[in-house]
């Protein structure tokens, strides 16, 4: 129901993301989705990869500040209003969204929104009740 996401603390300077992607490329890790949040001083690079535990290990060995956390991937139909339906529902239920970004599906017709919400257990339950499909670990980690 939840998927693992890597969050990496990076400096706000050219080349700092390439350093991370370089380490992952060398380790043969596939990046499935990413987002960068930035502040004046630093950035947080968030990644969905095919092998999160191994990715965390190789980054940590290089002294990179990385943490592994669990997020939800919500299936969103690729039609006008598809996104709205999901967000309106979560809003109605009072679920707060901390951040989100897109994950492109290999199947046609829909995409996924990766979301970090304030109460992920409850959010997952609500989505299930509404029959809104969620991204499964199986789909993310397949090669």
């Amino acid at each position: 129901m939840f998927i693992s996401q890597l969050s990496i603390f990076v400096r706000n300077s050219p080349g700092s993301i390439a350093e991370i992607t370089g380490i992952l490329a060398k380790a043969g890790i596939d990046i499935r989705a990413f987002s960068v949040a930035d502040t004046t001083d630093y950035g947080i690079l968030r990644l969905i990869v095919n092998a999160p535990d191994r990715a965390e290990k190789v980054l940590r060995e290089r002294g990179i500040a990385v943490s592994l956390n669990r997020v939800i991937g919500v299936q969103v139909p690729d039609v006008p209003g598809g996104m709205h339906e999901v967000f309106a529902y979560l809003a109605e239920c009072g679920i707060g969204i901390e951040y989100g970004y897109a994950f492109v599906s290999r199947r046609e017709g829909f995409a996924y929104a990766i979301l970090r919400v304030d109460d992920k257990e409850r959010a997952a339950k609500l989505l299930e009740e509404r029959n809104i499909p969620m991204l499964t670990p199986r789909e993310v980690y397949q090669n």
Partner: peptide
């Protein structure tokens, strides 16, 4: 410098 095991997912924590 942060120590390597700081949870870095949320800007709020930082």
């Amino acid at each position: 410098e942060l120590t390597p095991d700081v949870p870095v997912d949320q800007i709020r924590t930082l």
